[in-house]
Design a protein around this nucleic acid. Structure first.
Ligand SMILES: [Mn+2]
Ligand SMILES: [Mn+2]
Ligand SMILES: [Mn+2]
Ligand SMILES: [Mn+2]
Lengths: 158, 158
DNA sequence: GTGAAGTTGTAGCCATGGCTACACTTCGTC
DNA sequence: GACGAAGTGTAGCCATGGCTACAACTTCAC
């Protein structure tokens, strides 16, 4: 059994604490939103990465993208096809990948969010590499309200 | 373009900041770990929910699980099959679902992590419902190192 | 300019996780 | 105890996101 965080009231000794379940529709809504976030996570990472590659190297080639993501180039190409289908990117054969207006907007938003999450983690004492690692997953599940709170928190302790 | 967090150095006015890309193998490793976390997220949520249902109602039936997750009962049953396949749960037809030793260990760990993530979010000023919502996704991407940092942070400002 | 190497694209496979439709069991009520 | 409602299980569909294998195109070196 993992340790009890000290700021939480301990359960009455002897018997297990009855967990308090959220109301059923509330809980279903939460899980549903999490599933939605899941399905856009990959697109967000691609958009962010493509923007970075374009900014630094001038071009974003499927093979580079694949290598950076640690997947086969075939997988990358399939996801690039999805980006195109969803109006986030354009690509002509052998010419590299570019972002549409919508894609650039998404990339900028994702990038800002990514940085803010890393900064917040660092601020509460998470070691640098762990912060970078965890942020890569966490960023896709952070709502605007939470983002605002992160901003204010960082601002306050600057 | 989203707002610039004030604690970050602004890019030199006039030209865009060149993003600093992590080394390729580093970045690939990060994305890879995130993918792994993704694939266990669902099992974790099931284990946590089943434990809660068993603790409160004494039984965890596929239909209850499905309703709480907001999916069809057929989907729930398929994931329960995966839990069994991975040695986390047992279930005999029409008799409800139970956790194995391994399943209970997982559930306890997930539950503690979930609570800690919610508490951390609340502590940095995230509104209650947003904290609950976002934690449902974030929890699957929080490493032990990060969890420790959260603990210490909460302890320090208790 | 030609040939080899690297890049890109396509095809076909698998696992996961949704769904609906349908069949079968269990349970509660009368 | 019979019946109908609720719960459970199975089958078959789809999309996503991995993979390998192979084919076609570009590019670079010579
Ligand atoms: Mn990410
Ligand atoms: Mn990111
Ligand atoms: Mn969760
Ligand atoms: Mn949870």
């Amino acid at each position: 059994m993992p340790q009890q965080p000290a700021h939480h009231p301990a359960p009455p000794a002897g018997e297990a604490a009855e967990p308090v379940l959220p109301a059923e529709p509330t809980q279903a809504k939460r899980f549903g939103k999490t599933r939605t976030a899941q399905s856009t996570a990959l697109l967000e990472d691609y958009a962010e990465l493509i923007a970075d590659l374009l900014a630094t190297g001038g071009e974003a080639r499927p093979t580079d993208i694949a290598r950076r993501l640690g997947v086969s180039h075939a997988s990358a190409i399939k996801t690039i096809a999805r980006l195109k289908r969803e109006g986030l990117a354009t690509a002509r054969p052998y010419r590299g990948v570019f972002l549409t207006e919508a894609g650039e907007v998404l990339a900028a938003r994702v990038k800002a969010r990514h940085r803010l999450v890393v900064d917040l983690l660092r601020a509460v004492g998470v070691p640098a590499e762990a912060a970078e690692q965890d942020a890569e997953g966490i960023e896709h599940h952070v709502s605007d309200l939470t983002l605002d709170a992160f901003s204010r928190f960082l601002e306050a302790r600057k």
